[in-house]
Write a protein that binds this DNA or RNA. Structure first.
Lengths: 140, 140
DNA sequence: GCTAATCGGAACAATTTGGTCCAATTAGGA
DNA sequence: TCCTAATTGGACCAAATTGTTCCGATTAGC
């Protein structure tokens, strides 16, 4: 019931990358120094993120990373799914391989919980995360 | 982002145990045969469940299990927390040991998601799960 | 054409999880 | 009163996933 560390790092990394929306060009090492995470870890996170289509990477010298989409169109749910795969609390939700599929009275209840979780994650976009820590309690 | 198998088994096991609310006395092997789960696995699940105070166990011959509380007072959140510990998507929620605690703009958003998930799990009680699979779509 | 810088994937180590077994305990019968 | 049988409780071991690190492939710039 806990988010994996990689997914947590991915959210932080994307949050840091969103602050470079103007320039658009950032490197993995720069993101590592900004977030305080080890460089190899950020590299792995960035790889998964770009493989999922959330980050656009340019190889070679002078290359770098940039957001594939505007920050408003990227939610925390997208980032988590990019790293951990589809959000599914139980195997029943996606596939159907359940050891006790016959008399499973619990199955019809899982999609409700799953939707609630995913909805809560989808409600948070990158623009809300891109604000610095000195954000005040804005009366939204 | 997936529930552990043990927690899934625990929910199924408790759902099966709730159907014995009348007699109150059930054994782990009986629950295993009803759910189709391997016996040792049910034993382990039952141990954690009784250690958490959700199940009352009586040792010795003729002993057995029974729900410590009425089924209406037990929610899925209780079962999950009994097996996996407190529900916390990130370490920030419970403790404060975060590698990037300084400039973590993501931290204030996690309690919201965490509460949404826990609320969805707490809304489902054992009485809803105790119904057999032949339950119809009751217009609640 | 060469060098330097960067991403991408592969390999290794560690932690947690899942499964199995045996010992401690106790009610029931002789 | 003693013995037997049945059941839970905790401990042990194997496996999978996760987390970290490293090295190779690729490309712009000189």
């Amino acid at each position: 019931m806990r988010l994996s560390n990689l997914a947590d790092y991915a959210v932080v990394t994307m949050s840091a990358a969103a602050r470079h929306c103007g320039g658009g060009r950032t490197s993995a090492s720069e993101l590592a120094s900004e977030t305080g995470l080890p460089v190899p870890t950020v590299q792995k996170v960035v790889s998964k993120l770009s493989a999922a289509g959330l980050l656009r990477s340019t190889r070679g010298a002078g290359g770098g990373l940039q957001l594939a989409r505007p920050a408003a169109a990227i939610s925390v749910a997208d980032i988590v799914e990019a790293v951990e795969g589809p959000i599914a609390l139980t195997p029943c939700v996606t596939g159907s391989e359940c050891a006790v599929e016959e008399n499973c009275a619990v199955k019809p209840h899982w999609p409700v919980v799953n939707a609630a979780l995913r909805g809560a994650l989808a409600d948070i976009s990158l623009v809300q995360l891109a604000r610095t820590e000195t954000q005040e309690t804005e009366v939204a």
